[in-house]
Write a protein that binds this DNA or RNA. Sequence first.
DNA 1: CAAAGTCTCTGACTATGGTCAGAGAATGCC
DNA 2: GGCATTCTCTGACCATAGTCAGAGACTTTG
Lengths: 295, 295
Amino acid sequence: MPGIAEVRSFNRVVTREIGALADRFLGRDRSLGASRLLFEIGPAGSEIRRLRARLGLDSGYASRLLRGLEAEGLIRSFASTSDARVRLVTLTPAGRKELAVLNRLSDEAAASLLNRLTGSQRTSLISAMHTVERLLLASAVRLHLENPRSRAAQSCIARYFEELAARFEAGFDPTLSIPVAAEELTPPRGCFILATLHGEPVGCGALRCHAACGEIKRMWVAPSARGLGIGRRILQRLEELARRRRIPLLRLETNKALSEAQALYRSSGYREVSPFNDEPYAHHWFQKRLRTRGR
Amino acid sequence: MPGIAEVRSFNRVVTREIGALADRFLGRDRSLGASRLLFEIGPAGSEIRRLRARLGLDSGYASRLLRGLEAEGLIRSFASTSDARVRLVTLTPAGRKELAVLNRLSDEAAASLLNRLTGSQRTSLISAMHTVERLLLASAVRLHLENPRSRAAQSCIARYFEELAARFEAGFDPTLSIPVAAEELTPPRGCFILATLHGEPVGCGALRCHAACGEIKRMWVAPSARGLGIGRRILQRLEELARRRRIPLLRLETNKALSEAQALYRSSGYREVSPFNDEPYAHHWFQKRLRTRGR
DNA sequence: CAAAGTCTCTGACTATGGTCAGAGAATGCC
DNA sequence: GGCATTCTCTGACCATAGTCAGAGACTTTG
C-alpha cells in the first residue's frame, strides 16, 4: 500500500520533535503522569473514573498520582453526591495556578517551534497539522453494534434530542414525534450503531427493519467530532447491515434545519421522495434502493 | 501568536495516536529502547558513538542496551580498525531477521491506520504528514558559528567538494579552484556557519571578509535536508554577520550546474554581475549591496 | 614523550510508569 | 435482603529509562 513509508517516517520525526517539546514541562518537579493528570482534571474538575478512562490509567496508579497531587495541595477530592462510590476531584486555587503555569510553558514551547519558521512555513505547518490531527482522529473512531438501552447509547440519543430541540424552528418534543422503541433497534428487529473515539461516544445511527424496507433513524454525530466522515461511515455500515438482511429499500425523513444531514443523504445516493409517513418534525423524505446481491 | 493552540492540540492528538501505533512492537519481549537501537543500527551497522548521538543516550545506558542485544545474539560488536577506541556494531543474521520482523510490524501498524480511512482522506493525510515532518525538521535545524577546522566542518566541506565533483561538467579539483584557507573563515578574518540537525551537520556556509566587500563561500546543504529552507537561513545569517561588520557589499560566484543555488541567490536579492575573479569553475558572479544601518 | 582528550564500559543508584491481588464501601438487580 | 457489580484505595512488586562517577584503553596534541 502506498503511504506506509510516509506514515512511518512521520512517526519517527514527530515522536522525536514533539518529545523534545514535551520535555519542557518536566523541569517542574513533577512527573509527566502527574502533569497530564493535572491537565486532564482541568479547571472544571472531573470524576476520577473519567480521568482513568481518558488517560488509560490503572486504578492503583491513578490513585497514587492523585494522592501525590493532593499532598502538593493542588487538588481536592470528595465523593460524588449522586453516587458515593465515585470520587470527584477539583483543583484548589494553588492547582489552578499551577495549571496556568503549565499552560504557559506549553504555549511557550509551541511558540518557540513556530518562531524558528518563516511566516509561510508557519502557515503551512499549522494547516497541515490540523489536517493530520483530524484524520488521525477519524481513523481512531470505531463503530460497533450497541444495545440502544446502554448508558452510552442513551447519552447519544439524549444529546441528539437536545440538538434537535435547539435547531428545529419549532423546538423538539420526542413525545410528539413518531415513537421508536428500543426493541425495534435491537436485533432481530433492527440495530443501533455507536461510534466511539477512545471509548467516548461521538455518534450514533440506527436501523429499524420492516418487511419491505428499512428505516434509518437516530443519525447523529457529536459537534466535536464533525468533519471526520463519521456520519458517512455510520450510514455505510447501516446500509451494509440492511443488505445482509436482504432489505431492498431504505427510507428516512429529516428536518429542513439539518442541512448537513441532507447533504450526506443526497451524496450517499438517497433521492427525495414524497412523504411516506406523518412525522410532524420532518420536511424531507428520502429513499435509496439497495442492491441486495452479494453478501 | 496565532497557531499556538493548534500546535498544542496537534501534539496531544498525535502523541496519543502515534503512541498507540508504537505499542504494537512492544509485544516482542524487548524494551522500546532496545528496539529503537536495533532500528538505528540498521542493516549496514554503525558506530556506537553515532548511535548514542542519534538517539541521545547516555554512554552507560547505551552500553547496557547493546550488551543486552548482544546476549540475544542479534548484534556483534568490534573495535574500529581506524580508531581502536571506537566500537562498531553490526547485525548478525538473527538480528537482520529480527529487524525485518520489526519492520513488518511497523508497516502493518501504519497500514491499519491508513485502512481505516477513505481513499481521499488517505491522500490528504499522507501529504499533510509529509508537510508536518519537513517543517518540524526545519524548525529543529540549528545554526552556529563553527571552527572550519573542526571535524564536522571538514566533513561538510568534503561532502560539498564531492558533490561539486559529481555535478560539474568538468568535475572538480579543489587545487585548481581559488584557495580558501581555514584562517580566512575564522574570526576575525571571516566566519564559518554550520547547520546541524540533532547534532549531525547538514549544511554550511562561510563568509570571507575583505576591506570593501565580503565573499560568500562553501554554501552547501546535505541532500537529505534540502527543501527545509536551510540554505536561505545560512545565507541570511551570513548577511547579518556581514552587516554587523559594516561590510557594504557581498559577492559570490557559482557554477551553472548549481541551479538551485542560483535561484536562492536571485530570490535573496543578489544580482548577476560581470566576473570579479578568475575562478575556473565559476559561470555566474553575483553581488548584493547591504544596508549597514542598525546594529 | 607526556598530557589532554576521546570512547567505552562497569557498578551503584534513582525515578517513573505500570501491574496485580485484594479489601472495603456503595450501588443496582433480582 | 442477598448477591453481583462498580469504584477506589492499598501494598507489593517489577521493568524501563536514565544518571553519575570512575576506570581502562586508546589517540591526538604540543
